[in-house]
């Protein structure tokens, strides 16, 4: 295992002593999450005698995560592992933007505007989108959702922009 040819020697931003960048970064991130949770729960009550305080369990889990992350990162230095996977930006960016757009606009603008806009933003997530068909499908989906959720399922979702109703 240890003398496997190193795939990371070419074009890797990581120094040679990190033999598994994927796990190294993964481990460090878990350490960061654990440390952050420790800080976030530091204001909570700890053990009182033998009864748990509100902060006891979060701190136990945070410390556990911190230790596990550290072990993972250390392993990545000692043993050869996977190189970093390639991250893309287009899909994550536009899907997140679409979700954000929905969250921000559903209350003030209602389902029709919100669903239609989110659909179009999400469609930007791939270069393969053809706008004519996308707009047709977006219209159809918006119509279907406007009938399904508030009427067929009776969920209290606003349909129209609130300034129009008032």
């Amino acid at each position: 295992m240890t003398d496997a040819p190193s795939r990371l020697s070419e074009k890797s931003v990581f120094p040679k002593w990190i033999r598994g960048p994927q796990d190294f970064i993964g481990g460090l991130a878990l350490v960061a999450v654990g440390a952050f949770a420790l800080w976030a729960s530091s204001d909570l009550q700890g053990m009182q005698g033998f009864s748990f305080g509100a902060g006891t369990a979060p701190r136990i889990f945070a410390v556990l995560l911190l230790v596990l992350g550290a072990v993972l990162a250390i392993t990545a230095v000692l043993v050869d592992g996977e190189p970093m996977a390639k991250f893309h930006w287009r899909g994550p960016l536009f899907v997140s933007l679409a979700i954000l757009c929905f969250a921000v606009s559903i209350r003030p603008l209602g389902l029709i505007v919100s669903a239609f806009a989110s659909f179009l933003i999400a469609a930007l997530g791939t270069p393969e989108t053809r706008w004519k068909e996308t707009i047709i499908v977006a219209t159809a989906l918006t119509t279907a959702c406007s009938l399904l959720f508030p009427y067929a399922l009776g969920l209290p979702i606003p349909l129209y922009p609130s300034f129009l109703i008032r």
Binding site: F102, F119, L120, A122, C145, F149
Partner: peptide, 30 residues
């Protein structure tokens, strides 16, 4: 899939929103 995935995104967003009627839930899911 280019037509399917935006529809799934929107449908999921509506679904999450309708659990608590909370826009914040949608952001968290994102």
């Amino acid at each position: 899939y280019r037509l399917l995935f935006p529809a799934i995104v929107v449908f999921c967003a509506i679904g999450i929103y309708s659990v608590n009627n909370a826009p914040m839930d949608v952001v968290l899911a994102g």
